[in-house]
C-alpha cells in the first residue's frame, strides 16, 4: 500500500475535524450540557479518530490484514458499528429513564391523594378553613 494514497491536505483536514470534534465534546462538558458518565464513550471515539488521522498507516495495514478492497470500507464499518452500539445503549438508557419516570409519577400520584385526603380532614376539623391555602383552592 502506498503512502501517496492519502494526500497531505486530507490529513490536515481530518486532523482539524478530529480536533474540532474533541473541542466540541470538551465545550459541552465544560458547560454541563453533557455528563462525564455519557461523555467517556464520545471522548474515546474522538481519540480513535485523532490517532487514525495522525497515523493513517494503521488503517492501511488493517485494511490489508482484513482483506478489504478499500481503506474507506474499513472506516465505514468501524463508524457504523460504533454508531449502532451507541444507539442501542441510548435506547437502553432511555428505557431506564422511562421506568424511573413512571415510578416517580406513580408515587407522586399516591402521595398527592394522601395529602388531599389529609387536607380535607383538616379542613373539616378546622371549620372549613383550608389548612394550606393554594391557588387551586380558589376555584
Amino acid at each position: 500500500m502506498n503512502w501517496d494514497s492519502i494526500s497531505l491536505v486530507l490529513r490536515i483536514g481530518l486532523l482539524a475535524a478530529g480536533t474540532g470534534y474533541l473541542g466540541l465534546i470538551f465545550w459541552l462538558l465544560k458547560h454541563k450540557k453533557l455528563t462525564v458518565r455519557y461523555a467517556i464513550i464520545w471522548l474515546a471515539s474522538a481519540a480513535v479518530l485523532l490517532v487514525l488521522a495522525l497515523f493513517p498507516y494503521i488503517v492501511l495495514v488493517l485494511t490489508d490484514l482484513l482483506g478489504m478492497a478499500q481503506p474507506a470500507n474499513l472506516m465505514f464499518i468501524l463508524v457504523i458499528g460504533f454508531m449502532l452500539l451507541l444507539l442501542l445503549s441510548l435506547s437502553s438508557i432511555v428505557s431506564g429513564f422511562a421506568e424511573k419516570i413512571k415510578r416517580m409519577a406513580q408515587k407522586q400520584a399516591l402521595l398527592e391523594q394522601r395529602v388531599r385526603q389529609l387536607e380535607e380532614r383538616l379542613r373539616a376539623e378546622g371549620g372549613g378553613q383550608p389548612p394550606f391555602p393554594r391557588e387551586s383552592d380558589q376555584n
Binding site: 419516570i101 413512571k102 409519577a105 406513580q106 408515587k107 407522586q108 400520584a109 399516591l110 398527592e112 391523594q113
Partner: peptide, 25 residues
Amino acid sequence: CNYISLPVNLGIGGGVQSGYLYARE
C-alpha cells in the same frame, strides 16, 4: 370520589400499576 391523578400520562399499564401499588400500600 376516591381517586388518584397521575401527573403525566403513563398509559393503561402504568396507570393500573399505580392502583396495584395503592392496593399493596
